[in-house]
């Protein structure tokens, strides 16, 4: 005789997921300490994205930090359109994970994300071509930008330098440096 299909208690399902993905005891304990609705919402997300220990720890960190800062519930955060959109998109799991993490990072780091977006837009507006690449320090910590030129011959190099020189002369490059300072 088979046992009737009784739905497991939530904490048992979380523990089962932890066993399946070999989560560490501290990570599991942290998750289990959450309110039921938050715990359940993260379980849905974890199952969908097959989160491993490292990803799950990032999610726990960011979700707890946002919930404290914005005085909101994790369950509400995870069901918000910004998270649901990449989660329900018809894309590969790795793409979904990338999309959800990016969306959550924007909520966790709103000003830093905005500044990064502004800088990307400012660099794009410079229209330097594909052979000139401008990059910024990780997390914008520091005040130096890196300019990489790719050239197959002297003419290409001269073109790159001319474009750069023009952007310096017309003040548009200065705007990129100025933006780095604006929070």
């Amino acid at each position: 005789m088979t046992q009737p299909d009784i739905p497991c208690a939530l904490s048992e399902r979380v523990a089962a997921y932890a066993r399946e993905r070999r989560l560490s005891p501290p990570t599991l304990a942290r998750w289990q300490a959450w309110p039921e609705e938050d715990k359940a919402a993260l379980l849905v997300l974890a199952r969908e994205l097959q989160l491993n220990e490292n990803h799950l720890r990032d999610f726990l960190d960011w979700l707890e930090e946002i919930a404290v800062r914005d005085r909101c519930r994790v369950a509400d955060l995870l069901t918000a359109p910004a998270i649901q959109q990449p989660l329900t998109a018809h894309t590969a799991r790795s793409e979904k994970l990338k999309g959800v993490k990016e969306a959550l990072r924007k909520i966790r780091y709103p000003r830093l994300s905005r500044l990064e977006a502004d800088l990307r837009a400012a660099v794009k507006a410079l229209d330097l071509g594909r052979q000139v690449r401008i990059s910024f320090p990780p997390a914008l910590e520091g005040d130096a930008i890196t300019v990489t030129l790719t050239a197959r011959n002297v003419r290409e190099l001269a073109d790159c330098l001319t474009r750069l020189h023009q952007r310096i002369e017309d003040g548009r490059m200065q705007k990129v440096f100025d933006l780095l300072d604006q929070a």
């Binding site: 000003r111 830093l112 990780p138 997390a139 914008l140 910590e141 520091g142 005040d143």
Partner: peptide
């Protein structure tokens, strides 16, 4: 909005 800095410690991002 804290990020890792040159000494390995996390601080509010520079700007």
């Amino acid at each position: 909005e804290q990020v890792p800095c040159i000494d390995g410690k996390w601080r509010t991002f520079q700007a």
